[in-house]
Simulated scan of single mutants.
Amino acid sequence: MGQWAYKVVYVDYRGRISCEGVETLIGDERRSAFVRRYFDSIGRDGWELASNQPLTANSAYYVFKRAAQEGNYADQTPPAAAQEAPTTPPPTTTEGSGPTIENV
């Protein structure tokens, strides 16, 4: 089974597209042409529409996918030092033989 990379695009048909922190505003063109031009540009990079989720009459989320490429994924495994956790609780003392340790 292949791995996929995804891109989520927010479209406000009143004149704004937002994708991965980049805002694209409508120029002097029709709204449908504006969206089509944007979708054509990401389609040339290999992105294919996978689904859409309408939010209002004027906005929607569009999810695009393409075959995963090198660098599409962040390192999902934290460093080994961050994963290490004590397997046993710290030793506690019995009453009267030393200080009392409270685990909060």
Rank of each mutant, 00 (worst) to 15 (best):
Y73S: 04
R44S: 14
D40A: 10
W4L: 12
G27W: 03
D12Q: 09
Y10F: 15
P79T: 01
L25E: 10
P90L: 09
G15C: 05
L49R: 14
A33W: 00
P54E: 09
T88E: 13
T56P: 03
P86T: 01
V11P: 02
V104P: 00
G2K: 09
R14A: 05
V9K: 07
N103C: 06
F39N: 08
I42L: 15
T92H: 11
Y73T: 02
K7H: 06
E29S: 08
D45K: 11
L49G: 05
Q3E: 15
S59A: 15
Y73M: 04
P90I: 12
F34H: 04
Y13Q: 09
V9M: 10
Y73F: 15
Y38R: 04
I17A: 04
L55D: 08
D28R: 06
T92P: 00
F39D: 03
T92L: 15
P99Q: 12
A57R: 14
P89C: 07
T93I: 07
R30P: 04
G43R: 06
E84H: 13
R16N: 04
A68Y: 01
Y10M: 07
Q69M: 11
R14D: 07
I101D: 09
M1C: 04
Y10L: 13
N72F: 07
A57E: 14
T92M: 15
T93L: 15
S51V: 01
I26P: 01
P99G: 05
V63G: 03
Q69H: 07
A81S: 14
I42W: 01
P54L: 03
N52R: 15
I42Y: 01
G71R: 04
G2Y: 04
A33E: 13
T77S: 00
V104Q: 07
Y62E: 10
A74S: 11
S32M: 06
G43Q: 04
I17W: 03
C19M: 12
P54T: 06
T93S: 13
W4Y: 10
Q69W: 05
R36P: 02
P90C: 06
